[in-house]
């Protein structure tokens, strides 16, 4: 069930000299409640792919099924789909336009036909979820800090109460602390509310830490769709695509080369710590 793509192909400006293929023959199925990391080099088709998932652009060929229904079929209600599959664009703060933060976040639910009180209730809840404090609610979205703007914009999509949340590099241009805070609140949404998350990211460390499945795009094709550990074990191939594995994967490979047989599949600092302690303990015993 949930979100499924079948033979998705997208060609921009077909039939002209500017023709370019952004996606070719992509098929996958994303289970309800999973956390998927989407990685790929710039121009690999990530942004094009996620815009298909809530029906913003039509594929040249192939289609998308949400809960078993073809979203590009005649008469399908794309507007209500967009409430269920929320999409947060890159630099979402550039879409803010209202006079104050709260009114801006209310824009989504009101478009979906929610009453004034209902919209307000959802907006307040969404803002709290992403950690925007109450004293900012009546401020103009243009006079708060960059990190706060980003959160307000994410709340703008969350307030529609989506079942699937797609985020296109939500941490781009933020300082390390802002980055961790945003990622932690996304992770909380996933764990506490069971929202399916699709996170587009350039940071292997981030996807290794949060995602339970990884999707790797290379030159408009889907190269891997598997557990992070399995994907990272192909790090030579990832490098050829202009990507890399997390630092810890390289550390593990280096240690194994020196004859210290750590588990090949570790990819986060936490796992590395546990693994190295295990080996130290074993050698102490021996």
């Amino acid at each position: 069930m949930s979100l499924k793509a079948e033979h998705l192909t997208h060609i921009y400006q077909k039939g002209t000299a500017m023709e370019s293929c952004a996606l070719s023959d992509i098929s996958f199925e994303i289970e309800d409640g999973s956390f998927v990391g989407l990685i790929g080099h710039t121009g690999s088709g990530k942004s094009t792919l996620i815009q298909h998932l809530n029906g913003l652009i039509r594929p040249t060929e192939g289609t998308i099924y949400y809960e078993g229904e073809d979203i590009f079929s005649e008469g399908y209600d794309l507007r209500s789909l967009r409430a269920k599959v929320g999409l947060v664009f890159q630099y979402p703060e550039y879409q803010l336009f209202e006079q104050d933060v709260l009114t801006d976040v209310k824009f989504g639910p009101k478009n979906m036909g929610a009453s004034e009180e209902e919209a307000e209730k959802r907006a307040v809840e969404a803002l709290k979820l992403v950690g925007v404090s109450e004293e900012l609610f009546k401020r103009s979205p243009f006079e708060i800090s960059g990190g706060q703007k980003r959160r307000v914009a994410i709340a703008g999509v969350l307030s529609m109460e989506p079942r699937v949340l797609i985020l296109d590099e939500p941490t781009a241009g933020l300082d390390p602390r802002g980055r961790d805070e945003i990622l932690d609140s996304i992770d909380r949404l996933h764990r506490e509310r069971g929202i399916t998350i699709i996170l587009v990211s350039h940071s292997m460390e981030d996807v290794a830490r949060y995602a339970d499945k990884l999707m790797v795009l290379d030159k408009s094709r889907l190269k891997f769709f598997d557990e992070p550990k399995k994907v990272f074990s192909h790090y030579r191939e990832l490098e050829r695509m202009g990507l890399s594995a997390p630092q810890i994967t390289y550390l593990a490979a280096g240690l194994r080369k020196e004859g210290i047989m750590v588990d090949e599949e570790i990819s986060t600092v936490g796992e590395a710590k546990a693994e190295i302690l295990r080996i130290i303990n074993e050698t102490d015993k021996a």
Binding site: Q51, R79, F89, Y94, Q95, G108, N111, V157, M160
Partner: peptide, 13 residues
């Protein structure tokens, strides 16, 4: 185009 899509994703018409 980008802003239009972003607002459409928030249900704008």
């Amino acid at each position: 185009d980008k802003i239009m899509k972003a607002q459409t994703a928030r249900g704008a018409d």
